[in-house]
């Protein structure tokens, strides 16, 4: 996996340390208890995705949704966040016990969604309020999309966390590549594009350019 490094590769460490990290990360990743939090349409989608039988978040061990932030470790921000909600959301986040993770679902939490323009109160993205680990795009995202986000978070926890650097996450950015394409493909295509762009016919360009004007009339 060329560019991204897992915690083991980045920090090294002996056998015992890495095994302890593995066990603890497996436990944390497979037992993410979400906080019951939702504001608008994405919240309904999240409830249907996580609680309803067809798409069932209990398969991943995350169905114990706790109402108290002290006992929850995952905050799935689902819904539009407005200015009046922002300090309360931050309070909820601060009250959660560490290690705590945040998944921001829906366009409203990523960038403000359909309410960016001419809104006096909708926050343009929830990253201004608290640190987000995974963004799930969509308006609202499909349940499969939300689960992909959850699984990405699980992957991030399993390979990217370590006791030696608590609170630091390593994001599996390379998994954002479309299937069937590798970093080498991108690199070679970039090379060919740069090469094609590197040849300039100066005379043709000179003829193309008109004569400049020195006034504004």
């Amino acid at each position: 996996m060329g560019v991204e490094k897992s915690a083991d590769q980045a920090l090294g460490g002996n056998y015992l340390l890495t095994r302890v990290d593995q066990v603890l990360n497996m436990a944390r990743a497979n037992s993410l208890w979400p906080l019951t939090f939702g504001t608008s349409c994405c919240a309904i989608e999240m409830m249907m995705a996580t609680g309803a039988p067809r798409h069932d978040i209990a398969r991943f061990g995350a169905e114990v949704a706790r109402p108290s932030p002290r006992q929850a470790d995952l905050l799935i921000i689902a819904g539009t966040i407005v200015k009046r909600m922002a300090p309360r959301l931050r309070t909820l986040y601060e009250q959660m016990a560490e290690p705590r993770y945040v998944i921001a679902t829906g366009a409203c939490t990523i960038s403000g969604g359909p309410f960016i323009y001419n809104s006096y109160t909708t926050l343009r993205g929830v990253e201004d309020v608290l640190p987000v680990d995974v963004f799930v795009p969509g308006c609202p995202p499909r349940p499969e999309g939300l689960f992909y986000g959850l699984l990405t978070l699980q992957r991030m926890i399993k390979s990217g966390e370590t006791l030696r650097q608590p609170g630091v996450r390593r994001k599996p950015v390379m998994s954002a590549l479309p299937p069937g394409i590798s970093m080498d493909d991108i690199r070679s295509e970039m090379e060919s594009l740069l090469e094609a762009d590197s040849e300039v016919d100066v005379e043709a360009r000179r003829r193309q350019l008109g004569w400049p004007s020195s006034t504004n009339t």
Partner: peptide, 15 residues
């Protein structure tokens, strides 16, 4: 008073 049509503040983003 935000719902007045001539309301503007620094936070709003106009296209």
């Amino acid at each position: 008073y935000p719902l007045r049509k001539d309301y503007q503040d620094d936070f709003m983003l106009t296209p």
